[in-house]
């Protein structure tokens, strides 16, 4: 039985990842491949997101600069990009849906920083206006 065919760059990379609430978590900036010991073909074990994953794909000076600064500014994650295990996926289409909230995924350090140090200090940041 062969399953559905997908091409990595065409169908998976650069797609939007959304959480259980439909909120944006990040893009699929890269994927982590697991290489089995028995020599069978590697498979995708996790989605990677954030500047540390995007940098190497951009390549060149800009890419290294991006990785360097996000590493330097990061408090806990170090050089590793945000990682979302494939077991959390519930849908893989025009966007990738995961069965966790943004907070639980913990791949959101820069957004948190922008919120805490900048946006939340402006009055009215908490009101949704629909």
């Amino acid at each position: 039985m062969t399953g559905r065919v997908r091409d990595l760059a065409l169908h998976l990379l650069d797609r939007q990842v959304v959480d259980t609430d439909g909120a944006a978590v990040g893009n699929v900036d890269d994927v982590e491949l697991h290489v089995p010991e028995d020599g069978s073909p590697p498979y995708v074990i996790a989605l990677l997101t954030g500047p540390q994953a995007l940098g190497p794909r951009l390549g060149g000076r800009l890419g290294s600069w991006l990785v360097f600064w996000s590493h330097a500014l990061s408090r806990h994650s170090g050089a590793d990009p945000g990682r979302i295990g494939m077991e959390l996926l519930t849908d893989l289409g025009a966007q990738v849906t995961v069965a966790r909230s943004r907070v639980e995924l913990g791949v959101h350090e820069n957004e948190d920083r922008a919120r805490t140090y900048f946006v939340e200090r402006i009055p009215g940041a908490r009101d949704a206006r629909r």
Binding site: Q16, G26, N27, E111, R115, F118, V119, G124, R126, A128
Partner: peptide, 23 residues
Amino acid sequence: LSQYLGWQWGKRTAPREAARFHA
């Protein structure tokens, strides 16, 4: 910029929920 980088964007939610977009 938000769409390129996959950030939460838009006016639907409170600004704090789309912090980088509003910044």
